[in-house]
Computed example of a mutant assay.
Amino acid sequence: VTADEAYGQVSRLRLWMEEHDIHHVVAVPKSQTVITMDLGQERAHRLIADLPEQAWERLSCADGAHGPRVYDWARADIRPWREPGKGHWLLARRSITDPEELAYYICFADENTTLVELARVAASRWAVEECFQAAKNETGLDHYQVRGYRAWYRHITLSMAALAFLVRLRQGVQKGDQNTPRACV
């Protein structure tokens, strides 16, 4: 996977996860081509644009810095040839304030997986991104100049361990925990 590719765009990765029964919700661009239920091919944004308005459901799937993150969500079945009991969907998230702002995801899970569950999994990405942003800001996760994997791995491991320490330290300070290590000044 190159830097300009999203993991969801790599069909080899999605197929590998399916072969190993790893359920997933992966982001894809609006230009992503999917196999429709009539065995045609369609770009994600066109398939979603054809959905009726009643296909959209307003959901709060995660809390953000400014309260609940509320979006309209819809899904369309894709890939009619599938393993029994499994489902494939194209999931879309639409901004309430700007309906032209959409995000797309390809999903694989049990056939009875609800739209609410797919939206919850798609939204869990925000927590991961916030964690990495905090690590970049507070422990220098992105400040490495290494040439080899081992050096990179050591830097990343140390940075994430430092972030875990800081989180634990903050939790203890907020609770007044006497056993929490104090930072050296």
Results as ranks from 00 to 15, higher is better:
68 P>D: 05
77 D>K: 11
85 G>C: 04
95 S>R: 14
88 H>D: 03
73 W>H: 09
113 T>C: 00
67 G>K: 04
70 V>I: 14
86 K>A: 05
91 L>G: 00
84 P>I: 04
101 E>Q: 15
71 Y>I: 03
107 C>P: 04
76 A>K: 10
104 Y>K: 08
88 H>T: 00
95 S>L: 10
110 D>P: 04
103 A>M: 10
97 T>E: 15
105 Y>N: 06
69 R>F: 02
96 I>P: 08
97 T>F: 07
76 A>M: 07
104 Y>R: 07
86 K>T: 10
102 L>C: 15
94 R>K: 15
102 L>D: 07
102 L>Y: 09
109 A>Y: 00
83 E>F: 10
81 W>P: 06
66 H>A: 14
102 L>P: 06
91 L>T: 03
101 E>A: 15
86 K>Y: 03
74 A>E: 06
96 I>F: 05
100 E>V: 06
78 I>A: 04
110 D>I: 00
99 P>L: 05
76 A>G: 05
73 W>M: 09
103 A>Q: 13
78 I>N: 08
83 E>C: 09
72 D>I: 04
71 Y>S: 11
71 Y>T: 02
113 T>S: 00
100 E>A: 15
88 H>E: 02
66 H>R: 12
88 H>R: 09
103 A>D: 13
70 V>D: 01
95 S>D: 15
68 P>R: 02
104 Y>S: 08
75 R>C: 04
84 P>C: 10
89 W>Y: 05
96 I>V: 15
70 V>A: 01
108 F>D: 01
79 R>W: 02
102 L>N: 12
111 E>H: 11
72 D>N: 11
73 W>E: 04
93 R>Q: 15
80 P>N: 12
87 G>F: 00
91 L>E: 02
105 Y>L: 04
69 R>A: 08
100 E>L: 13
69 R>C: 10
73 W>A: 10
82 R>T: 14
106 I>P: 01
103 A>K: 11
78 I>L: 05
67 G>I: 06
106 I>A: 12
80 P>T: 11
107 C>Q: 01
82 R>N: 12
107 C>W: 00
80 P>Q: 12
111 E>W: 01
110 D>H: 10
71 Y>Q: 07
78 I>P: 09
98 D>K: 13
95 S>V: 08
96 I>T: 12
69 R>M: 10
98 D>S: 14
107 C>K: 01
86 K>R: 15
103 A>S: 15
68 P>A: 09
70 V>G: 03
110 D>C: 07
99 P>N: 11
109 A>P: 02
91 L>D: 01
93 R>H: 06
79 R>A: 12
113 T>D: 00
93 R>I: 02
66 H>T: 13
104 Y>L: 07
99 P>H: 12
108 F>W: 10
108 F>S: 08
109 A>N: 08
90 L>V: 06
109 A>V: 00
77 D>Q: 11
